[in-house]
């Protein structure tokens, strides 16, 4: 999706203005910590996954995406997931209370499961039946695709030619997984693009940007 989230190469967002590493607090307000905990441990609709999480974030109204702070984005995603999945109603979200007579579940993730889940979750490598199409050192072109759904091919890379640096084996494919249409794993590659290729003749002749791209994002160059 060509949303506002696809920011690589944009101007106008101002300086990075980083906080000093030694002084930056982990949370800028207590609610941020609660929101992280909620996001990690709440019960999601069946089939929900990390790619769907990212996609729903990308569906935030663009001005809110830009104006709201990071953990407030997580709030927006959780609420949309609950509403869309029928786990809560709009009135319940607004009031902060379960509707009278609504059933209470007893299967929420427990505190004593947290450490193990943090250790074992999030492995996205998968077997792929077909051999890889591309080899390290090969020149490839990122295809010019403009899916309205979720993708991890940023606009600034499309149509550009780079060189495969690493082949990572098979990985869950976000473009289908985000829409609960299956993991459909594909070979994943890191491709290096020169800055000049990406940005034009005024860019550095020396620097590069490396991007992790699934096989269907690429064609031989």
């Amino acid at each position: 999706m060509n949303g506002v989230h696809d920011m690589g190469g944009m101007h106008g967002h101002g300086p990075v203005a980083p906080e000093d590493e030694k002084h930056e607090p982990l949370w800028h307000a207590p609610w941020e910590a609660r929101m992280l905990g909620i996001t990690r441990s709440m019960t999601y609709p069946k089939g929900f996954n990390i790619d769907r999480f990212r996609h729903i974030r990308e569906l935030m109204p663009p001005h809110l995406y830009l104006a709201r702070s990071y953990y407030d984005h997580w709030y927006a995603v959780c609420v949309a997931a609950l509403l869309n999945g029928g786990l809560a109603t709009k009135e319940e979200i607004k009031s902060g209370h379960a509707a009278a007579g609504s059933a209470k579940r007893n299967d929420a993730a427990r505190a004593d499961q947290v450490w193990t889940s943090q250790k074992t979750q999030g492995i996205f490598t998968r077997e792929v039946a077909t051999p890889p199409q591309f080899a390290t050192g090969q020149r490839v072109r990122a295809r010019n695709i403009n899916p309205t759904g979720h993708t991890r091919l940023p606009r600034y890379v499309r149509g550009k030619v780079g060189v495969v640096q690493i082949h990572h084996g098979g990985h869950v494919f976000p473009d289908t997984n985000a829409h609960v249409q299956g993991e459909a794993p594909q070979h994943l590659y890191t491709v290096a693009f020169s800055m000049r290729e990406l940005w034009g003749a005024d860019a550095s002749a020396r620097d590069e940007t490396c991007v992790d791209l699934w096989e269907s994002y690429l064609e031989p160059a």
């Binding site: 992280l36 905990g37 909620i38 441990s41 959780c78 009031s95 902060g96 929420a108 505190a111």
Partner: peptide, 20 residues
């Protein structure tokens, strides 16, 4: 409000939030 709602519905355990 979200935490309170989820707790009431059993969709989250506040102790798990603390643990995270």
């Amino acid at each position: 409000a979200l935490e309170s709602l989820l707790t009431e519905k059993g969709l989250v355990d506040p102790a798990a939030i603390d643990a995270w």
